[in-house]
Structures are given as C-alpha cells and as structure tokens.
Amino acid sequence: MIRTGIIGLGKMGISHCAILGAHQDINLVAVCDASSLVLEAFKKHSKYQCFSDYKRMIDSTELDAIVIASPTRFHDEMVSYALEKGLHVFCEKPFSLEYAKGKELAKRAKQLNLVNQVGYHNRFIGTFIEMKRLLKGGVIGPVYHFLAESYGPVVLKESNSTWRSKPAEGGGCLYDYASHTIDLVNFLLGRPVKVSGTQLKMVFSKNVEDAVYATLTLESGISGQLSVNWSDETHRKMNTRITAIGKRGQLIADATELKIYVTAENSTLNLEKGWTIKNITELAGNVNFYLRGEEYSAQIDYFINAIKSKSVENKSSFENACQTDQLISMLQADGAGNY
C-alpha cells in the first residue's frame, strides 16, 4: 500500500480524493485544504487525518506520495517541499506559473529519482491514444496542418469572484482550458515552439482572457491553429478536439470518438478507404473505480504503477508540463497587445 496524502480539495482535488480513496493499492492517509468549511466536512464524515497546513501534513504522516491540487500559484513551493521530503508527486495542471521554476523542479525530481506526473488526463483517453498510434503508423501520410480546439461553458457572465479570474494566480482560459489543448498537441503531434497571431479575447472577464486564438508551429515545422473558448455555452461541458490533416487523410479525435479518413485502404492497420469511426466504448480500458471518466482513474493507476516499478520516465512528466507552461507564456507575450 502506498501511503498518500492530498493537498487541495477543490473541484479536481475532491475528485482525485475519491479515486485515491477507492484505490486498492493506495492508503489515503491525510487531506489538506485551506477552506474551513471543506475541512469540517472531512473531519465529520471521513476517516482521513485533516490538515490546513501542508507542511505539517507532510512532516507528520510519513507519506510515500502526494497529490497536489491546490490553486496553481502554490504549486512551486508545495512540489518543491514534497520532493525534498522524498515524496513522489502528482500535481494538477497547469504545472507552474513560471516555467523556469517548473524546469528546476523537473530537474530536481529526476535527480532525486522521484516519480513526477502532471494531471493532463487527456493523455489517458482511449480516442487520443489511438490517434497517436495511428499517427505513428503514418496512416494519413505527412501531416501538414492541425486544428486544436477546446470549448466549454465556464464563464458566462461578468463576475470576478474566484482565483480563476485573477491573472497572477493562474486564472484565465489559457491556464485553465488551453493548457489541455496545447498539451494534447505536444502529446499527439510534437512540441509547439513558436506562436504567432495570438488573439486573447475578453468576453465577460475583466482581467483575464476568456478565449484564445493563435497559430502554433511545432519543432518539426508543422503549423496549425489553436482555438479555445471557455465562454461558449453551446457546449454542455468542456469539449476538446484535435484534427490532424495529412496528405493521405485526416484524423479527428475528441473524448468520445475518433474519426479516420484515409485516401487508400491500409491493410496493416485494418482500415478501409474512406471513413472509419472508432468510439470510446471500444477504446476505453476498464478501470476498477469510475468517476467522471476512465482517464482520471487511469492516470492515477499509471502514477501508482510508476512508483511500484520505480520508473521516473513519465507519460505526463513535469518536463512535458513545463513545455506547455512555456508556450502559455509565449502566447501571453504575443497576445499582450491584442487584448
């Protein structure tokens, strides 16, 4: 059993907490949150030790691993403290508001031989995993363009009541939504290294962007479009879709289905000419405990397996996450004049 603690019991933290609590290989020992309301509920109705000070929790509970789901501005100090105490760390996205600090942490985790993972859960969704496999197999020939989109209904009217509406604390649709989209581009197509034509649009918010539109160029030279909007109520919940356009076909994936179009039959990968549709119902792996999506359990399973097999290389490492953080700062700089 891996002795685990969690910092942050907000929307993501509480969901992680349930998954950790139900996991057969995890002994969830302690929880930590700044809200007295939330802590009171845990004190009264759960069996976990409750803390409001994360250092005290780490110092007094002999943990092997920690899940950090606090507001982004606290990630650096919390991750650093946990690493120095020898804990394996799973941190929510985005990783760090200052990518230089994030890079230091990535380096330090490697030096200390500790498992380091960031909660980019799309990397664990069956449709995107299959898309990556097909891209690797070259089914659509050389890719010459991509479109990376995320839309959802988060900010639908004027208000500024939480940290998500404060730029210095990691608020805004770039950190909250676009980080997922950028990370998926990195996972599926390669690392984006250049941005141009960035438009950051305030729809309802006064201090942060609600939408971002930009051109991204990958290390390989391929370019494509990023289009993200968290003030879009035509979507019931967050939808992320990646379209890759190649010389010999197209791949379009979201969390529910993968659409494949190939200009000629591919017998090695068993694809007929034209359209093939694969659904998440056939692509999702079974998990032992389900909450909100297989991917949330799958990423925790992966983290636990990495600890058990002492594998520091990770499918969603601190280093990968830093690349996303760096790109976000490039988008901020490029779009600064375009608010």
């Binding site: 509480i14 349930a18 609590g21 009264k44 109705h45 759960s46 909450l291």
Partner: peptide, 15 residues
C-alpha cells in the same frame, strides 16, 4: 452517479 460515486470513493457513507 457522479455524486454517489464521489461519496463512495470519499468513504462518506453518512450522506
């Protein structure tokens, strides 16, 4: 299910 399973995972059977 999202609430049932959340409470289930959290061990908050009281609710």
């Amino acid at each position: 299910n999202v609430i049932t399973d959340l409470l289930l995972g959290l061990g908050m059977t009281d609710f």
